[in-house]
C-alpha cells in the first residue's frame, strides 16, 4: 500500500495486510503524535489495511513560538 508521510512530504510502499497499530510501530511513530487517514476518513488503530489502500499518516504536533504562549 501507499503511505503518505509529511514534513517533509514523501510516499513509501508497505506490504499489507497490516493493522494501523502495527504499521505505526514498524515505522517507529508514536500514535499520540499522528492521525491516520484513508481516503478522506479517519481510521482507528485496530483497522486492518489492505495492499490496495492509500493512507496518510499525518503529524499533529506543531512547533512555533513558545513566546506567544506565555506573555500577556
Amino acid at each position: 500500500m501507499k503511505v503518505l508521510l509529511r514534513n517533509p512530504r514523501r510516499e513509501i510502499d508497505v506490504d499489507g495486510p497490516v493493522s494501523v497499530n502495527t504499521l505505526l510501530e514498524r515505522l517507529e511513530i508514536n500514535r499520540e503524535s499522528v492521525i491516520v487517514i484513508r481516503g478522506d476518513e479517519l481510521i482507528p488503530a485496530d483497522t486492518v489495511l489492505a495492499d490496495s489502500d492509500q493512507v496518510e499518516i499525518r503529524p499533529v504536533i506543531s512547533g512555533g513560538a513558545v513566546d506567544t504562549q506565555v506573555r500577556p
Binding site: 503524535s33 499525518r58 504536533i61 512547533g63
Partner: peptide, 18 residues
C-alpha cells in the same frame, strides 16, 4: 495548513511535546 512554518524555532518546544 498541515505543513510546519519554515521559521519554526520549534526544536525545543517540539522536544517537550515529544
Amino acid at each position: 495548513q498541515v505543513d510546519e512554518c519554515p521559521m519554526a524555532e520549534g526544536n525545543r518546544h517540539l522536544a517537550y511535546k515529544d
